[in-house]
Measured scan of single mutants.
Amino acid sequence: MSIQHFRVALIPFFAAFCLPVFAHPETLVKVKDAEDQLGARVGYIELDLNSGKILESFRPEERFPMMSTFKVLLCGAVLSRVDAGQEQLGRRIHYSQNDLVEYSPVTEKHLTDGMTVRELCSAAITMSDNTAANLLLTTIGGPKELTAFLHNMGDHVTRLDRWEPELNEAIPNDERDTTMPAAMATTLRKLLTGELLTLASRQQLIDWMEADKVAGPLLRSALPAGWFIADKSGAGERGSRGIIAALGPDGKPSRIVVIYTTGSQATMDERNRQIAEIGASLIKHW
């Protein structure tokens, strides 16, 4: 067993022997301040990774656009098919120029040779490549099948209805392509620590998230040296922004954090800054 596999296998073990965790309302004060600064709703939840206990939450059962955070769930569904012998990570998928959609920095470079399922998941999570996500959605049967996968996990809230990039439209009061912070946090925890996926697939999923290259201005910008984070960000229309993450000190994750916002007129930089400040408060009061 590799060191990384050992780390993920012992996530519940280490967490069980940690000192009790206590909620700190100071972080919620910052979440509410972010709402004021952005002029928009902000949803927040913080779960203990081992027990699933909610440590703090704000608007945990209000719907927010998922945006690209759905790509972690998508690759979880792909990995479940791999575990069941219905898919192979090494299978190569070929596609054409007509398949390319807006923001496809990886797939646009491989029109000639195609990409493997493993490479597509890596591109979808680490670079948020939209064509990679659409190609992977095709392998599982489309958005409705991802929703069905989530329902089978016990998540009857999260739903995907459309493809990239239309799913980022974020129309107010439109339930399409949305989740709730509580539902997303619980589902992410199941994917990373539950028995739904094999140990190898859980490790692969967290490795992809740990290698995320496009979430630097968010929670990662607030992390002290030595902290662990595996995350996936999302951005959408109407001032929408979000991030889902597993993080913790001492090089291992111990909490799940989900943050979503929508309806702001603020710039992307300002949305990023507010999420980073929430992260800084979380870490300060850990």
Rank of each mutant, 00 (worst) to 15 (best):
M1R: 01
Q4W: 08
H5E: 09
H5Y: 12
V8L: 14
A9K: 12
A9P: 14
L10E: 04
P12Y: 13
F13V: 11
A16M: 15
P20D: 15
P20L: 03
V21E: 05
F22P: 05
F22G: 11
P25D: 09
T27Y: 02
E35G: 05
Q37P: 04
G39Y: 10
A40C: 08
R41F: 08
R41D: 07
V42C: 08
Y44C: 03
Y44V: 07
L47A: 08
D48K: 04
G52P: 04
L55T: 08
S57L: 09
R59N: 09
E61K: 13
R63K: 10
P65I: 03
T69H: 07
V72Y: 01
L74E: 04
L74C: 05
L79Y: 02
S80M: 12
V82T: 09
A84D: 11
G85M: 08
G85D: 10
Q86W: 10
E87Q: 08
Q88R: 12
G90E: 15
G90H: 12
N98F: 15
Y103A: 06
V106W: 07
V106E: 14
T107W: 01
T107L: 08
E108I: 12
L111C: 10
D113K: 12
D113I: 07
C121I: 05
A123S: 09
A124D: 01
T126N: 07
M127T: 13
N130A: 03
T131Q: 03
A133Q: 00
N134S: 04
L136W: 00
T138A: 15
T138E: 15
T138F: 10
T139R: 10
G142F: 01
P143K: 03
P143E: 05
L146Y: 06
A148W: 09
N152R: 15
T158Q: 01
R159I: 06
R159V: 07
L160P: 04
D161N: 08
E164R: 01
P165S: 07
I171A: 15
N173F: 13
D174P: 04
E175K: 12
M180P: 03
P181D: 00
P181I: 04
A183D: 07
L188Q: 03
R189H: 13
R189M: 10
T198K: 13
L199H: 12
A200D: 15
D207R: 12
M209G: 03
A211S: 13
K213V: 11
A222H: 10
A225F: 10
W227P: 00
A230M: 07
S233Y: 01
S233R: 01
G234W: 00
G234S: 09
G236S: 07
E237V: 10
G239Q: 03
I243V: 11
A245K: 00
G248M: 01
G248S: 03
K252N: 11
K252P: 05
K252D: 09
P253R: 09
I256H: 00
I259S: 01
Y260S: 02
T261A: 09
Q265C: 10
A266V: 12
E270G: 08
Q274T: 15
I275F: 12
E277Y: 08
A280I: 14
S281F: 15
L282Q: 06
K284M: 10
W286L: 04
W286S: 01
